[in-house]
């Protein structure tokens, strides 16, 4: 099994170069996906300077825009799918708020009660059930899209896929940068990057790390309009299912609030909720995770500790 390395944000504390060096890739070319940067996709000079090796941008954002111009039918079909996903998300959010509130309030209750454990468990089950149903519906939308359209659009996408495959075959690793998580995921999915990459090692950070897992969870406990509810946005690319990467966790999450931490962990268990703050690193190799010392894991008891696989 090839290697996957997940990293924290790279803007102020870049570690990609040292990670690539540690993978023993020599000076081989680096294929990069910066589609999450959207129209700034091409601005990879800083990254190229940092990694000090030839960098080839897959230009997935630009390729998608050109493809949409060439194939309006594909564009319409994708837009329709996105509209369905958005509508589903809107409705999901309404229900989510109503199941998360009691779960949080029950976890905050400290008065002893013979019923408390049972009520907490059932409140949590309600949240997990809602998430599971949401994931099923997301999966159904993607399946329906693939069944209806995938074959008819193969020809339109083929040229880009062939070019991407050629680049990847000449590269020693694939780097996936962060940015807009939905845009990034859609572009990676559109061009089938996980299939094309074969056994190429992946180094991904921030949103790039989020999209590789089984599900993509949005989270922010400090938005200006009050604390938000983490929500499952999408099914991810599924390269692993036992870790939920949390970029900028120290800033975005109230890690000092044991109730919020505990609910977050129990909600997404058995996946380990792992911080990806600047300098953090989590590597999957031969089916096992290894982490840098700074990388932490949220715990079911509401605490946060150094990441240990299987804990």
């Amino acid at each position: 099994m090839s290697q996957i390395v997940l990293l924290g944000p790279q803007r102020h504390q870049p570690t990609v170069a040292s990670v690539l060096a540690g993978l023993g890739l020599g000076n081989g070319d680096l294929a990069v996906v910066t589609a999450g940067w959207q129209e700034r996709e091409g601005e990879v000079d800083e990254l190229a300077d940092h990694v000090r090796r030839p960098v080839t941008n897959l230009h997935l954002h630009h390729r998608a825009e050109s493809l949409f111009e060439r194939s309006p039918q594909l564009f319409q079909a994708l837009r329709q799918r996105q509209n369905r996903l958005r509508e589903l998300q809107r409705l999901h959010r309404l229900r989510l708020d109503y199941v998360l509130k009691p779960a949080r309030r029950l976890l905050r209750r400290s008065a002893p009660s013979e019923f408390l454990d049972e009520e907490r468990r059932e409140a949590l089950d309600a949240v997990r059930h809602l998430d599971a149903r949401h994931e099923e519906r997301l999966g159904r939308i993607h399946r329906e899209f693939d069944e209806q359209w995938q074959e008819s659009f193969q020809d339109a996408i083929q040229r880009d896929r062939a070019e991407i495959a050629e680049i990847l075959s000449n590269s020693s690793a694939l780097a996936i940068a962060g940015g807009h998580v939905a845009v990034l995921l859609n572009r990676l999915r559109l061009f089938g990057i996980t299939e094309l990459r074969g056994e190429l090692p992946i180094v991904a950070w921030s949103a790039g790390a989020m999209v590789l897992g089984k599900k993509v969870v949005l989270f922010h406990d400090r938005p200006p309009q009050g604390a938000g509810n983490a929500e499952v946005l999408e099914t991810g690319l599924g390269l692993f299912d036992d870790v939920l990467p949390l970029p900028h966790a120290s800033y975005r999450l109230r890690l000092e609030d044991p109730v919020r931490v505990s609910l977050f962990v129990r909600r997404f268990a058995p996946a380990a909720c792992v911080t990806l703050d600047p300098g953090d690193q989590l590597a999957l190799s031969q089916g096992h995770w290894q982490s840098s010392p700074s990388t932490r894991q949220l715990l079911a008891d509401g605490g946060v500790s150094a990441f240990r696989e299987g804990s």
């Binding site: 944000p9 803007r11 940015g179 807009h180 989020m210 949005l218 922010h220 938005p223 938000g228 900028h248």
Partner: peptide, 10 residues
Amino acid sequence: FPGPLWMVYE
């Protein structure tokens, strides 16, 4: 004008 803070992880 809500920003994209929920969607962007740089």
